[in-house]
Computed example of a mutant assay.
Amino acid sequence: MSARGGKRALYMLLYFKSGAGIDNIISDQKDGGQYLRNRQGNQTLSQKMAEELCPNSVFLRMPVTSIDQSQGGHCTVYTDGGVSFQCRRVIVSVPTSLYHQILFKPALPKGKATLSDNTATGYYTKVIYVFKEPWWQTAGLSGVLDSDKGPIIFTRDTSIPVDDQWSITCFLVGDKGRNWSKLPRAVRLQQAWEQFSRSFGEFVDVPAPTNTLEMDWTKEALFLGAPCPITTPGVLTKVGSELATPVGRVHFVGTEASREWRGYMEGAVRSGQRGGAEVVKALLAESMPRF
């Protein structure tokens, strides 16, 4: 392998290692990357946590435009809605690739800026087919499709039996997904359904879905892709160690900054716990009397 090829592979290898190997990160078995799903969706976790906080603790639809720690002793956070907040510490949890959308005062050090300028998320769309009944399970099928032809690259059974909810989620990713996304919506969905019904139709009669859901993460302004920001060749070697490094009173978290389960929700949670612990430790140190 050439040096350049090695640099390209480095992030991929680190990604695999953080999830205990490629077989584990794609596994539906216990402790595998695809093992657990939240019954009512991941947003439920945020909503339930917010309910435990004091009123007016969570502010929505206020994208941060600037973080100013130039005055010393505190930070001022400015938002798109014109509202500002003063605090002693800030935790930034947006993807590294979006740091450039925030004006930092003083500016981020060179290492952090290099990470932001040379990190990107991939193309990632989900199309979910909801059915009246689990026809694939009745036929003894797993609901898993793997293809290199596209536009669907792979599928997973995302049913919730206790709720009588039966669905298969299709993932349209990479260049094939990106090219597919440029088509009109009706054509996109027709192509996806033709591939889906043709593939499973080799083994069983495939009924029409009762509902079809589409989610294109690249069109979400605060994500611009999924599932995880990756660095361009050479960047990880040079400044990768600065992914989780605080800058003054600003701390950085995110799934890409986790040592375990990078790119997964588990990694995001672990990173958040690490960032929270950093802030608590810093605040306690500030409150200690100095002699």
Rank of each mutant, 00 (worst) to 15 (best):
Y78W: 08
Q71W: 07
R249Q: 09
T65M: 05
A285G: 10
I128C: 14
S97C: 07
G201V: 03
E256I: 04
E202H: 13
L283F: 02
R262C: 15
V204C: 08
G33H: 15
P289S: 03
S159Y: 06
M1P: 09
P233M: 01
S2C: 02
W135V: 09
D163V: 04
Y264V: 06
A9M: 10
G254Y: 01
L103D: 15
K238W: 06
T245E: 13
A221G: 08
T79V: 01
L10Q: 11
S271C: 05
R259C: 05
I230E: 11
K105A: 11
L224D: 02
G73D: 05
A3V: 11
P63V: 08
G111S: 11
E52C: 15
I128G: 06
V127I: 13
L115V: 06
A20E: 15
R274F: 02
E194C: 08
W180D: 05
K149I: 13
Y129W: 12
D216W: 02
A50D: 02
S27N: 07
G72C: 03
I168H: 09
T114I: 10
W180E: 09
P227R: 04
G140Y: 01
I230N: 09
K126H: 12
S18H: 04
S147K: 06
F16P: 00
V83K: 08
Y123W: 14
V279N: 03
K48F: 11
L236C: 01
W193N: 03
I22G: 00
F203P: 04
K126V: 13
P134D: 08
P207D: 00
T121N: 15
S93G: 11
L115P: 05
R290A: 14
G177P: 05
L243N: 01
S142L: 10
W193V: 00
I25W: 05
S84L: 07
L236H: 01
G19D: 08
D205K: 12
Q43F: 11
H251F: 15
T232P: 02
V253D: 02
V144C: 10
F59G: 04
V247W: 07
I26F: 10
T79Q: 03
V269K: 07
A186T: 01
V92S: 00
R39E: 13
R178V: 00
A107P: 05
A192G: 01
G248T: 04
Q86E: 15
Q190A: 14
M62I: 06
S181G: 02
G140F: 00
R8E: 14
R188C: 03
A50T: 02
D148P: 03
K281N: 15
V279P: 00
P109M: 12
S241A: 11
R198A: 14
P109A: 08
V127Y: 05
G32E: 03
S199E: 12
D163K: 14
R61Q: 15
V90R: 00
E266F: 05
R274V: 01
P106S: 02
V235T: 01
S84M: 11
A50N: 00
F59D: 06
M288E: 12
R178L: 10
L45C: 09
K176P: 08
D157R: 13
G174E: 04
E51C: 02
G267E: 05
S159P: 02
V204W: 10
S46L: 14
A20Y: 14
F154E: 02
Y264N: 08
L284W: 10
P106F: 03
N38E: 12
D80C: 10
K219R: 13
L284T: 05
Y78C: 06
P209T: 04
K219A: 10
